[in-house]
Each structure stands twice: as structure tokens, then as C-alpha cells.
Nucleic acid binder design. Structure first.
Lengths: 138, 138
DNA sequence: CCTTGACTTAGAGTGCACTCGAAGAGTTAC
DNA sequence: GTAACTCTTCGAGTGCACTCTAAGTCAAGG
């Protein structure tokens, strides 16, 4: 019924047709059913799986490990313990990235604040600019 | 005095010698002074600059734009307004990434919680496992 | 009937950021 | 003095995740 063409699926998931086929080729997606014309028909379930892959990808997991994880998922419930181990590892790594990002955001904020200060000073007193040389070090 | 060899600099900054030379070649670092033997000698100021590059890089700025930004920095104070524009763009992008990461962390947490629940259930009642099939959809 | 356009495949190409290799020179250890 | 080591440069190679091309098929429109 509500099966989508590759174009529509790509549009809706915010991903390119190329990437959809690439994921399928790589075994990250199940083989997508084909219509009478041989064109792919994406079901809602397929799209849900794509979303799952996007989230997994977003955790920083590389394609190689996604293949592994996906195969675990398809292998059945006896792989759940291993799946947890994998996810834990990426949770730790993601937490580290988030922490680093906070530092980088601070860096940007400080830099922008400092520069904005210099600009305001220039506007306020267009004469006294020459003395401003001290780059904020961090 | 406290000038470091490329090995020491790499060690201290947590970066490879290759990358240090690469950054210099690309014009991201000023030309590093060489000792009598032709070997690079890194000053504290050089290392500060490396740190600056690492922070910039951490904001998600690609090498190409870093080159631009660095050239603005070296060009003098009249480029400050443009520097602010650039940094603002990366602040917006970084904020978006941080928001996305929060979503990805939630995803991991939910998955891990769900799986852990299944595991506990298995341990508690090793018999009633067969009925457990409903994958958490998100 | 013929063109247009979207799909199919396998495989090649791209962009990024390193990362490494080869060739050569200078210092240090025995 | 010669072997081992580390540095130098330049250019090539790597790994990742796409991204695109070429050649072919099929359906609809004019």
C-alpha cells in the first residue's frame, strides 16, 4: 500500500538514493522488495530500519561495526548480551565526544566574545585601536 | 631554551609528527625554526598555536577553512569582523551537532536499557524466553 | 516510433585528513 | 669508521563513507 519508491524514501529519510542502495549492498538493510518493473519498493518497516541505521551511525559507529551489529540483531536474542557490550562502548565514546564538544563550544564563545569586545571598542573609540594587539590565548 | 624536538612536540600535543609537518606544509602553522642540524625546534608559542588549531579543528572546521581563518588571523585586526562571522557559523553548526548527539545518546540509553531488561528477564526466569520478540522500535 | 526520464547493476571516482615510504643527510654508539 | 638512528623533503598511499558513471532496461508522453 504505502510503499515508496527509492526517490520518495530518499527524500523522506534525508539521505541520497545512492546511499540507500549502498547500505543495501553492504548488508546493512535487508534486501528491499522489488515491484513488477524491478524497482525497489520501500515499506514502512524498511524506513524504520533506515532510521535505526541513521541513529546508529550518529552515535559514531563506523559502517564496519554497523554491519556487525546489524548481523547480531538479525541473528536473534542470544546475541543481546554482545549487543549491549557494543552499545556501551559507543556510549562511552559518545560521552567523551560530547564532553569535548562542550570545550570546543566554550572556545568559540570565548573567541567570539573577545573579538566582539574588540569590535565594540573600535566602534566606540575609532582612534584608540592601535594598542589592541593581545590575542586571547585561549 | 625550552624548545622541543618534533618528537617531543608530537608527544606533548597528542598528535603525530606527520601531522605536525603536514599542518606546517599546509600553512596552518608558521614556519617552525630549525636548529643547526636542520631539525625543527618548537617553541612554547608554536605549541600554543598547535593547541589553537586543535580547538579550531574540534569545532568541526575543515582544514580548508582553517587555512582561511589562520590567514585572517595573521592579516591583522581589520579581519576581526570576518573572523567573528566564521566563528558564528561554526558555533551554530556545533550547537546542532551537540543537539543531535543528545538524541543519539538517548537512543543508546534506551536501547541499552531495553536490552538489559531482556537480559535480566532471561536470568530471572530462564524458561519464559520464547515470547520475547518485540524489538524496541526506537 | 522515438525521445525522455527514472530506474537497475557493477565498479570506478571523490574528498577529506591524514599517514606513510623512499631517498638522503647528519649525529651517536660501539 | 661504520652501523643504527632520527631527522629532512616530496610525493604517493590509505581508509572512510559515500558519490557518481556507464551501460542497459523499461514505461509513459507526444
Amino acid at each position: 500500500m504505502t510503499e515508496l519508491t527509492i526517490d520518495q524514501a530518499a527524500e523522506r529519510m534525508g539521505i541520497s538514493k545512492h546511499t540507500l542502495r549502498y547500505y543495501e549492498r553492504e548488508g546493512l538493510l535487508p534486501e528491499i522488495a522489488k515491484g513488477a518493473n524491478g524497482h525497489r519498493r520501500y515499506t514502512e518497516e524498511d524506513l524504520g530500519w533506515v532510521k535505526f541505521l541513521q541513529l546508529l551511525r550518529g552515535t559514531g559507529m563506523p559502517i564496519r561495526e554497523m554491519k556487525h551489529f546489524v548481523s547480531l540483531t538479525w541473528a536473534g536474542d542470544h546475541t543481546i548480551a554482545e549487543r549491549v557490550e557494543v552499545l556501551e562502548r559507543y556510549r562511552v565514546a559518545l560521552a567523551a565526544r560530547m564532553e569535548a564538544d562542550r570545550e570546543h563550544m566554550q572556545f568559540l564563545n570565548h573567541k567570539i566574545d573577545y573579538y566582539s569586545g574588540v569590535l565594540e571598542l573600535e566602534n566606540a573609540t575609532p582612534d584608540a585601536v592601535a594598542g589592541e594587539r593581545a590575542e586571547a590565548r585561549l
